[in-house]
């Protein structure tokens, strides 16, 4: 739908939604109304106070600033919008994101960008466990560290961690590229350290650049799938 939308919004038009007086449903309805025709480009959300489901299902090139801490599933299913959270977020930020950018100024709880197909998630603080679980093409850049089981069953896209990674990184990994600058507590099943070739340095450089972080790409280690769990091996039949 959004590809065919007409952009009518005048530059500088901005709407403020204060959740001290309006509901989360009011906010999401107002944002969804922009899907077919954008009349207001910039949005500001005040007093989020940990509410869940803020700015979910947005389908338009909106710029949304959430001032404060958000609850679960913030910016979930995002398409095209650039959503910045000036605080922490709960579980499942940008879950199933399709495109656009979600930027968390604070920390993120578990399952950040779970199953996300596209777009960029930037976390300036730390992310909890299962960051990028089953990610399907999105890119995630975390300035801090990520918790255990991050990138579990990651299928496509890239996870960049400027800090450390917790236990079982990349367990049952498919083709997500993982780059970690700090230490990795342990690797999950079928996840191995891999050679950093020029194409990977280029990808990493570009992602750090998009996130606005100045970490040296050469300081990172790449991890990927050993591709040993892709197919059923008849030798393992006895184990079932």
């Amino acid at each position: 739908m959004s590809n065919t939308s007409t952009v009518r919004a005048e530059k500088g038009t901005m709407k403020t939604i204060d959740l001290a007086s309006e509901t989360v449903t009011d906010l999401n309805h107002a944002l969804h109304e922009q899907a077919n025709e954008m009349t207001i480009e910039e949005w500001e959300v005040l007093n989020p106070k940990g509410h869940h489901n803020l700015a979910v299902g947005v389908d338009q090139k909106l710029k949304i600033d959430i001032h404060g801490h958000a609850g679960y599933y913030c910016a979930g299913m995002n398409k095209e919008a650039e959503i910045t959270i000036h605080g922490n977020v709960g579980q499942g930020v940008a879950e199933n994101m399709m495109s656009g950018k979600v930027h968390v100024k604070g920390d993120a709880s578990s399952a950040a960008a779970a199953t996300a197909h596209g777009g960029l998630l930037v976390i300036e603080g730390n992310a909890g466990s299962r960051c990028g679980i089953s990610m399907k093409g999105a890119n995630i850049v975390v300035k801090g560290s990520v918790g255990h089981m991050s990138c579990f069953m990651g299928q496509a896209g890239a996870l960049v961690v400027c800090g450390d990674a917790g236990d079982a990184l990349g367990d049952s990994l498919y083709e997500t590229h993982i780059y970690v600058k700090g230490s990795v507590k342990s690797l999950g099943a079928d996840c191995i350290e891999k050679e950093m070739r020029q194409e990977h340095l280029d990808e990493l450089t570009s992602l750090l650049d998009q996130a606005g972080f100045d970490d040296d790409p050469k300081a990172f280690t790449r991890y990927g799938s050993a591709r040993q769990l892709y197919n059923f091996k008849v030798d393992n039949a006895g184990a079932y």
Partner: peptide, 9 residues
């Protein structure tokens, strides 16, 4: 402490 941040606001 709380299960969710909402309870601390």
């Amino acid at each position: 402490m709380a299960s969710e941040y909402q309870a601390l606001t």
